[in-house]
């Protein structure tokens, strides 16, 4: 049992994901509280250079062709072996597509408690206190995981990015376990279709969510966007339903946007959506639920019916 913290970094197409640096920065702060080291872990192939970009106390880079692309089976095997060998105080994953495949899995495999959706971590009297946003971001739950080791998956933006950026030389090693006969094989990356407007390049976005109700109401939102010289964006349920193309999706699995104006119609503000728009310069939210988390993020808000407001705005603008 050590007091070290492992930050499990991630990368795609040779680029280290921002959340990796955020976690390393967070790990450094916490490691001081535990009296251990903040260790960045990178799994990959031909990534030695990128592995040297963390401000960690130490970095361990596991290089193997089978780790070139994320593969939950390969990454899981390696991490389970590393965790068994190092028995760290804390293992940090990003609450990302990659991290979500591994954190809870490793919790069961290693018999270590897990806290997901974490947006705040602290060490109080030697104990880890993890605060997670659950129930769609409507509640904050504070827990002290039992035992002397824990796993957390942290939300994007929970820690500042720059504290984790640095130039610690990485110790490179071969995989500690065999990566033959993997039950999962990576075959290819599929890049998003080009052709639609690039919502990340727009100054003004009108974003619609579940509150829009049906396909038929998209037209009203479209007209309003047009009248405002804005472009239509959406939260996940809208693109999942096929009402707008995937290229319009803002949020964790869509894109992050920073427009001058983000006018929101019927979006309650699940953490996954807020992740993608919290840096917009000016946010107005129209949502009938006064408790919707989006009102903690927006600058102006109203609980009036979105259709009534949109129609009235349209009328005044035309």
């Amino acid at each position: 049992m050590s007091n070290d913290i492992l930050a499990i970094t991630e990368h795609l197409n040779g680029n280290v994901a921002d959340i990796s640096y955020e976690m390393v920065g967070g790990a450094k702060e916490l490691a001081a509280g535990f009296g251990g080291q903040a260790i960045a872990i990178m799994l990959g192939s031909g990534m030695a250079e990128q592995a040297g970009t963390f401000a960690s106390d130490a970095t361990l880079y596991v290089d193997d062709p089978a780790l070139a692309e994320f593969n939950p089976a390969a990454y899981g095997r390696v991490l389970a072996a590393l965790v068994e060998e190092k028995s760290p105080r804390l293992i940090m994953f990003g609450n990302t597509s990659m991290g979500m495949d591994l954190a809870a899995w490793l919790s069961v495999k290693a018999g270590v408690p897990c806290v997901a959706y974490v947006n705040h971590l602290a060490v109080e009297g030697g104990e880890l206190v993890a605060t997670a946003q659950i129930y769609g971001g409507k509640m904050a739950a504070e827990c002290v995981p039992a035992g002397d080791s824990a796993i957390v998956s942290v939300m994007a933006g929970a820690f500042p990015l720059d504290a984790g950026q640095g130039s610690t030389a990485a110790e490179q090693m071969a995989s500690p376990v065999s990566l033959d006969d993997l039950p999962i094989r990576f075959t290819r990356l599929i890049m998003p279709e080009a052709g639609d407007v690039d919502i990340t390049a727009q100054e003004k976005l009108v974003a619609i969510g579940r509150g829009i109700g049906s396909d038929d109401n998209i037209e009203l939102a479209e007209e309003l966007a047009e009248a405002m010289d804005a472009v239509l964006a959406a939260s996940r349920p809208i693109t999942d339903a096929g009402w707008l193309p995937k290229t319009r999706q803002v949020g964790k699995s869509g894109v992050s946007v920073k427009p001058k104006l983000y006018l929101m119609l019927g979006i309650s503000g699940a953490p996954e959506h807020i992740e993608g728009m919290k840096d917009a310069e000016f946010i107005i939210a129209i949502n009938t639920d006064a408790d919707a988390p989006i009102f903690d993020v927006a600058h102006y808000g109203t609980t009036e019916d979105l259709f009534d407001v949109a129609e009235a705005m349209l009328e005044k603008l035309e």
Binding site: C143, V144, A146
Partner: peptide
């Protein structure tokens, strides 16, 4: 799970939107 909640609360937010009063018009 070994992950008992010791406190639950509505999230403390840095700010809150200024709510616009009046009817839709």
């Amino acid at each position: 799970s070994g992950c008992e909640i010791r406190k639950m609360a509505k999230p403390v937010s840095a700010g809150h939107a200024e709510m616009l009063e009046g009817d839709a018009e």
